[in-house]
Design a binder for these strands. Structure first.
Lengths: 151, 151
DNA sequence: TATGAAAACCGGGTTAG
DNA sequence: CTAACCCGGTTTTCATA
């Protein structure tokens, strides 16, 4: 489905989506039209899902990252769906995964500082019903963070 | 530093960076030039760090997500720096955080399937010296995943 | 507000599997 | 035959001073 040129193209676009087709065509050794059509195809079949601006969390005072394990008291369809619906609404939660292991969910939470995290836990997260227990870990430093998938 | 218009602008760009300045100006009730200059400023002072294409991991057969806790045998400057340097090189590791708690690091690993994860653990991760123990959890489903920080 | 660049799109011609 | 590419050209749109 994806040939080597597509993979190179995706690598370039995952690192900088503001490059012109001309620059891409040069980097890939293709014509501008060919690049244009490959991108269009990648967009159409949903391989490229969106184009976004990434912002530096330190610059906007949202550098406190917490990882929060959550266990539900019960795993009925109702409780699970309600929890997932509510958690999706929380702006502080950037990521939420249903995972294997001792806990049911792993959340990545982004806030200003520990005080804001406390507020988040008390007023928002544990306000969702049916949460049995939670366990939080805090980021000391970010060693690596990329959105680029290597193909 | 950021006024409400900047925040609205960043929200729009974090969701779709391919919008034209004209569309943004319309959404914000500003002139095209004003939008243009605000964006330029946000780029220049590093609040917008980059523009990227996001790709659908399911469409490229990289839908197996593992979270991997890692503990080092020892925490000397040397060992820590070496581990962090090595882990940054691993394509499968999208994110790596030094965290508080029982383990030292939390890694988000993206591979094709469980077999590829096994390969990754045996041939790559545990090949880094000084790793004491690891504990892995696997994603069952992705409830939420966004790159957009709410301001 | 003006201009130069680039994207978007099209038809047609070419090659390769 | 089909797919991918290239070329040239038009129109529209945008970034930018």
């Amino acid at each position: 489905m994806l040939d080597d040129i597509d993979k190179d193209l995706l690598k370039l676009l995952q690192n900088d989506s503001k490059q012109t087709n001309k620059a891409l065509s040069h980097a890939l050794g293709l014509s501008v039209t060919a690049v244009y059509e490959r991108i269009r195809k990648l967009e159409k079949n949903g391989i490229i899902s969106k184009y976004v601006a990434l912002i530096d969390k330190k610059k906007v005072d949202k550098a406190f990252v917490a990882f929060c394990h959550v266990k539900l008291v019960q795993h009925s369809q109702d409780y699970v769906m309600k929890f997932e619906r509510e958690v999706r609404k929380l702006d502080e939660v950037l990521e939420c995964y249903h995972i294997s292991g001792d806990y049911d969910y792993l959340l990545k939470v982004l806030v200003e500082d520990m005080e804001a995290f406390r507020e988040f836990m008390v007023k928002k997260l544990t306000n969702i019903n049916h949460i049995g227990s939670t366990h939080s870990m805090f980021m000391i430093s970010e060693v690596k963070h990329t959105t680029a998938i290597t193909l």
